[in-house]
Design a protein around this nucleic acid. Structure first.
Lengths: 242, 242
DNA sequence: CGTTAATTTGAGACCATTCAATTTCGGTGG
DNA sequence: CCACCGAAATTGAATGGTCTCAAATTAACG
């Protein structure tokens, strides 16, 4: 397939190729998927809870996060997403969105009709496996997040989150100990179950200890081993053998 | 199929039938699955983190939970399981167990070789869909747990957990506002990210307000509406239309 | 029944929150 | 290019929810 690197969905193929064996036909079938490209500004809602789910959404550019709102107005962020990831794979089967998806910064997505995706999975075992793996790794990350917000103190939580995100960014070729990191401290707080104020103080403590540098939307990991130790981080749960 | 109700795996078929259309052939194919039956005592490890995953485990009798241990010795429970549920479906594809599974009380399981299950899914689309749904609902519950431990106060957390468990027990025919409830307060604490002491005081507060009665391993829900309000509980995330 | 596990109670300490004010950053228009 | 503005980050001090530690009571089980 000649347009491999220029096709909108090629980041998806590139990521899948790391854990699944895809044939040329598999790739062509993915490139033949119908989709609509859309763009969202900072904080815009990409998916809303309760909304009927008719598409699956791949993030092409920018960062996004999934969240749930509480009765009292609080917000809990459930996961962050980087380009090439589906932000709502479950919507392909469950009929209704059970949570919201919001853009961190300006981002571009491809929306694929759910039937097109399920048909593709029915026809192509390799793609079925790739999607299946995506779903299972997603779930594994949720489990780790339960542990993170449930049983770790603030410093460990923040460090763990930074470990996860920087490792995922590194593995998808988005940097090497220096990453675009547009998340605000309020978003990090909502992801770790802390307040923005305490998140701020906690980040300062990590900076003071020379583990990270974080400012102007750039994260530098200065001491990976120190950060993983501070974050009680074991990458097994990401299931990225490479 | 004559042995429908007496086959060891019939609880699985019964539960799947609530969300998926299974033909007689699908049922027979499930009943033809090879498996080993095993029994575990209270607190016994059914699966251990890091262990190579060669089987998928269906809970037939008793309660179980999944958990992760922290470096500092802490434990976070990630989910509870009731009979007819898989406790480690992800192991069918991910090669390694990324968390532990423990028995709450004496329980019986059926262990199905992973290839037998994946072959079945490859052959039978209806079963594939049923397993897919199980996985997605599992993930949805993890997401809600992130919210629960991340952003709710202790009373709301405990109430929410009790809502979820009693609703799941009700929907699978394990009672009607009165349930076997063998979990210890320490386990409820590890599931909600609280200490056992504080869990105890929180349960007392729910009892004092006439919402529940919980003693001797029996949970009675006295005021369902009051409990759901106290627990900020909306059952959408369970995706049980029935 | 004796023994251990589980639950319950009390008091003090602490981590994270709340609230409010200040400073810095990032983008925009003159 | 600089002045301006709102958003984001930072700081301080007081409050509070949950934890810790330790002891007492009750329930479960062989």
């Amino acid at each position: 397939m000649r347009l491999l690197d220029t096709h909108d969905l090629s980041p998806l193929i590139r990521r899948w190729s790391k854990h699944s064996e895809l044939s040329a036909q598999d790739r062509d079938a993915v490139f033949a998927l119908p989709f609509i490209k859309r763009s969202f500004g900072k904080d815009a809602y990409i998916i809303r809870e309760g909304q009927e789910a008719t598409e699956c959404t791949v993030l092409l550019k920018g960062f996004a996060f999934r969240q749930k709102l509480l009765r009292d107005g609080g917000r809990q962020i459930i996961s962050f997403h980087i380009p090439s990831e589906f932000v709502d794979l479950q919507n392909g089967v469950l009929g209704v969105a059970d949570h919201n998806v919001q853009a961190v910064n300006r981002c571009e997505v491809a929306m694929v009709p759910r039937e097109a995706l399920t048909d593709l999975m029915a026809d192509r075992p390799a793609i079925r496996l790739a999607v299946w793996l995506d779903t299972l790794i997603d779930a594994s990350i949720f489990r780790e997040w339960v542990v993170n917000v449930g049983r770790r103190d603030s410093r460990t939580r923040i460090a763990h989150l930074l470990c996860e995100l920087s490792l995922r960014l590194k593995k998808t070729g988005h940097g090497d100990d220096r990453y675009d990191f547009p998340m605000t401290q309020e978003q990090l707080a909502d992801a770790t179950g802390l307040t923005a104020v305490h998140t701020n103080r906690t980040l300062q403590s990590l900076r003071r200890d020379g583990l990270i540098e974080l400012s102007n939307g750039i994260l530098r990991v200065l001491d990976w081993q120190g950060l993983t130790e501070s974050g009680d981080f074991d990458e097994l749960y990401l299931h990225q053998q490479i």
